[in-house]
Design a protein around this nucleic acid. Sequence first.
DNA 1: TATGAATGAGTGTTCATTCAT
DNA 2: TATGAATGAACACTCATTCAT
Lengths: 206, 206, 206, 206
Amino acid sequence: MPRASQSSLLKPRKTPSQSRAEQTVAAIIEAAAQVLETDGFEGFNTNAVAQRAGVSIGSLYQYFPGKDALTLALMRREADRFFADAVAASDETTAEAAMEYLIGAAVRQQLQRSTLARLLDAEGSRPAFRREASSPNRFQLLLVQVLERSDMPSQNHPDVAAGDVSAMIRGMVDAAGNRGESDAADLTRRLRAAVFGYLAGTASRG
Amino acid sequence: MPRASQSSLLKPRKTPSQSRAEQTVAAIIEAAAQVLETDGFEGFNTNAVAQRAGVSIGSLYQYFPGKDALTLALMRREADRFFADAVAASDETTAEAAMEYLIGAAVRQQLQRSTLARLLDAEGSRPAFRREASSPNRFQLLLVQVLERSDMPSQNHPDVAAGDVSAMIRGMVDAAGNRGESDAADLTRRLRAAVFGYLAGTASRG
Amino acid sequence: MPRASQSSLLKPRKTPSQSRAEQTVAAIIEAAAQVLETDGFEGFNTNAVAQRAGVSIGSLYQYFPGKDALTLALMRREADRFFADAVAASDETTAEAAMEYLIGAAVRQQLQRSTLARLLDAEGSRPAFRREASSPNRFQLLLVQVLERSDMPSQNHPDVAAGDVSAMIRGMVDAAGNRGESDAADLTRRLRAAVFGYLAGTASRG
Amino acid sequence: MPRASQSSLLKPRKTPSQSRAEQTVAAIIEAAAQVLETDGFEGFNTNAVAQRAGVSIGSLYQYFPGKDALTLALMRREADRFFADAVAASDETTAEAAMEYLIGAAVRQQLQRSTLARLLDAEGSRPAFRREASSPNRFQLLLVQVLERSDMPSQNHPDVAAGDVSAMIRGMVDAAGNRGESDAADLTRRLRAAVFGYLAGTASRG
DNA sequence: TATGAATGAGTGTTCATTCAT
DNA sequence: TATGAATGAACACTCATTCAT
């Protein structure tokens, strides 16, 4: 089938105005999360998601123009939840505490829905989602804010540092999830070492 | 067949010419690499690989029991090449130099066949390959050796540290690749900061 | 699904080299004709065609990149058969006899596979086939040849006249088919009146 | 409701304002026409029509039992308009002038809404509409009237002749539309040649 | 052993139609 | 009577895999 333009493919097809519709959309996204966690990408198909949501396949396509749009919606929901937790870092009085809070948020997310988080991380590298994934996300913006605090060793390129720290955390946390680690405290300790070690090493001299 | 015997005449005895089967296998794996790099996962299917290899689909299945086996073989080939580079780290006299060499090897691989490397990293998280990917690989074993050198701050759990360092490097290097970074020197510098910062932070006290 | 370029969509995907493949292709096209004739456009779907051909749906797509390509192949087959009959008009000694032969060929085709012919005529107006259908086809080229004979009232624009005559014949013959007419002789008589009347009326003066 | 009564005050009593239902029906039919002309058959679906009409899909089904009924209603509306133009042929004093008027009406319709006209012609061949399309329609009845005038070469079977003339005109006019012709005068000239030539050729002897 | 034609379960997506609100 | 969310049968098409030649 002739497909619409790339960008329109990822946009929601219809903004639900009735509450029933909102429920349906939420149910579909949650079902997508569950299918992904239960059956992995192998079993992640639109019919399975619709069925798990207790909704017809037609309803799914009423709200999502395609499978990728659904995946993206799920990614955004997870990012929203993660961000909703992480944003509280701003309340910390010291930059160090703020950074530790962010690390904690990442660990928390991983331990809660580890499979989902890792699968979405992997999916994020697909070309369809690259634009979304590669642009500095809200988590990185939070990181930049923390890095620019006065009580933090100052970085010449806070955005680059934020990207590195984000990638580093994600890499370690995902690997820990893959290994089946469950000791949050220990993982957190090692992440702190990595993050603060990196920041010390890249701080601008003088 | 004249052609075969002729070429074997020109090769040193120590590396006898590959058997025809070995050549075919290698051609298929290389074709898989090319397809993956050219067309991404979207275009990575067995028929395309066979065609690119100049081999019938039937022959492909003669040498590989299934698609996953082919993917795995490609992963292993890349890991072999990476290891062949990384193993030279053992020759460095100081642990620090050895570690820097390993970092350099990771960066080199990424810059050479970045797309392929990242795609394989992503694929590595699929359940079919998890065992392969999560068990400590040869790169991590090399890391352990370096970490256990006497002139390195000693780690209580060198294997854990090796896993972390490996994950950290891969995370940062993949993210850099996704971003399209090409400045190897700068990336290397930041990786050094991350790795040595982490190691300093996790070193056993006393 | 990402579609290839418009033109490539209509080209055969694979030129059958083995005789088995040729048989398969022919069987699929014949099945398409039968399905169309039996069930009309309502029932004309790729799965039904494959089944009627005694072939798997996969085989159909091995030789035809899409449904339209299959339809086009059928159109061409019918056009080929029609042309194979019509081309004998060249052997007629007088232009009038040649023209009558062409008219006869059109009637013959209609009476043989009337439903099919009309369905294909209708389908020919779809944008996907317009280029194919609107460019002067071989039948019209034959018409031009006949119109340019010296013993025919000369036309200022033989190509336009050929288009008109072709459209006129098709319109009348299809309508007759729709009405269920079966008297070939009478239909032929009226077609002659129409064609020769038109030609007399548009002949260049002097 | 103020607005309705206001407008009805301005209209002459003889053409009372359409009831709301009639307005809705007309709006839906016009929307169908627009969708067909804009997007072709590919885009001609009930939801699109309802949306273009500014009406809910539920309402559409309140007024039309199904898609075919809607298509049929559109066909009839176009036929009505065409007939409203063509019927004036009766006023012509000579049969020849009357016939020329009918030809002119056909050309006019084609040039005004060519795409729509051709699409409906094509759709008219579907079994669902065959009864409608194949039975002698009002245009053919007009033709019969003209053919039976005393100053017209008399036909043995005026109904058959009317069918032929109608089919011939439609065939040529549709083909011209498909080719993108826009010279109404030239097309009219050729149609005259075809029609009068045919009639001369089929006139009953004596 | 190589070939490539054939297979068919599986998947994404559409759209006419229904019905609870 | 109007709405539009929901339905689900139907369909185009893919691709890993098999097997006759």
